[in-house]
Design a protein around this nucleic acid. Structure first.
Lengths: 221, 221
DNA sequence: GCACTCTAACGAACATGTTCGTAACGAACA
DNA sequence: TGTTCGTTACGAACATGTTCGTTAGAGTGC
């Protein structure tokens, strides 16, 4: 029992790829909450400090895990459809992946992913925009907006998931609906509309807004 | 020296408002990094656990601090200007506030503010959209998009500030520019355009995109 | 074959967030 | 006035991220 480590074939040398792989396993088996430096180092039979040679910090680790998951995004759906529809489908697939792993979306908002799967996603989006005749300079900025919206939508959803019906979300809802009709006429008028619409509906509308807006708005200068 | 606490008039009773006020002072004097439960409780001459009666967690605390700062947002600039220009000006003022306090913007992306100043900001935005003839149902969803963009822009800036030229940002830049021209033609073509444009320019363009998009895109059903 | 150097690995330490159980305290009540 | 109860305050504990200084080992030049 004490030296159960002896049973293992050998302690494999540490590497970034190996660390991330174990982290992905950990994510699937115990959830993102357990993908911590300490838990992960225990799994790798070493100490937390050892990981910092291969991983800048926890955010970096989570970003690497996320990029791994981005490999499952469907980059080429239904090639018969309109370029706009395909654009929406790709981004919907992206959010679907994030939806399955609450918490990673929040990481994605704070840390800029730069893994190969993320780059492939950007490449695909740029391609679709080019196909739609969007000028390159506009497209470069547009992917930013599109990804931001998709990520934020997923992050919002995951926040509401993890905090169990989202405490601060309810706080806002209560505050908005309890607002004084005199001092906040528009807010009370908007009322429930502010919170209406399931995640997907709002996302789809938002993406259309962005596409239409990008097509209509040249860059300054 | 030992009982220097005796010198103080009396230990004021704890309250959420008082806690937040001290937190704001702490923010200005030592930066957001030092606005921690422990540092704050030391300032209030008590223990960390005592704060949890008035504050749900650290994110909640930071959100309350942020709302206080939102009181300095200019809600009614240059009333002679076009409603679109005024909308942009208000949101630009909002991001300017966030720019001054790197890190709070990131908090704003994860926690939904629900304080009075935030509600006042929403009210103003809804009013301007109504003035522009945007239907209420569209406006309700549009404020979400507008705030999201403004907040994300500030958060991105602050991230780059705090990590000193943003390590993961540079990683993405390097990855994008080092991408294979064969496998990632559009990415390499977009190239520097992806990262071009100072914060303000991108934000202003993004806001115009959203406004134009919202005007052009009715809600589904 | 030997000394040297560089880096991965690690042990220990410190500050952080958050929770749990308990003690103090004030208000309602008998 | 004495009791009870509910809330506030707090001490202690645990898990977390991250850094620092040291050690051990692999590779290198001679």
């Amino acid at each position: 029992m004490p030296q159960s480590r002896r049973d293992r074939p050998a302690k494999p040398a540490l590497s970034r790829a190996g660390i991330v792989a174990v982290a992905v396993d950990l994510l699937h088996s115990e959830g993102l909450d357990r993908v911590t430096m300490r838990r992960l180092s225990a799994e790798l039979d070493t100490g937390p400090a050892s990981l910092y040679v291969y991983v800048r910090n926890t955010a970096d680790l989570h970003a690497a895990v996320l990029d791994e998951l981005l490999g499952t995004v469907d980059l080429a759906p239904d090639s018969t459809a309109d370029w706009q529809d395909r654009l929406v489908q790709v981004l919907a697939s992206y959010t679907r992946v994030l939806f399955q792993h609450p918490g990673l979306a929040r990481t994605a908002m704070l840390t800029w992913p730069s893994g190969p799967h993320y780059l492939a996603l950007l490449e695909q989006l740029l391609g679709l925009l080019a196909e739609g005749g969007v000028p390159t300079d506009r497209a470069a900025w547009a992917v930013d907006l599109l990804m931001q919206l998709a990520t934020a939508t997923a992050a919002e959803h995951s926040t509401r998931e993890e905090t169990k019906t989202g405490a601060e979300f309810e706080a806002l809802r209560a505050a908005a609906q309890g607002a004084d009709r005199r001092t906040h006429p528009h807010l009370t008028a908007a009322g429930a509309e502010l919170f209406s619409g399931a995640g997907p509906d709002r996302l789809l509308w938002g993406l259309r807004v962005l596409i239409n807006g990008v097509l209509a708005t040249p860059r300054p200068e």
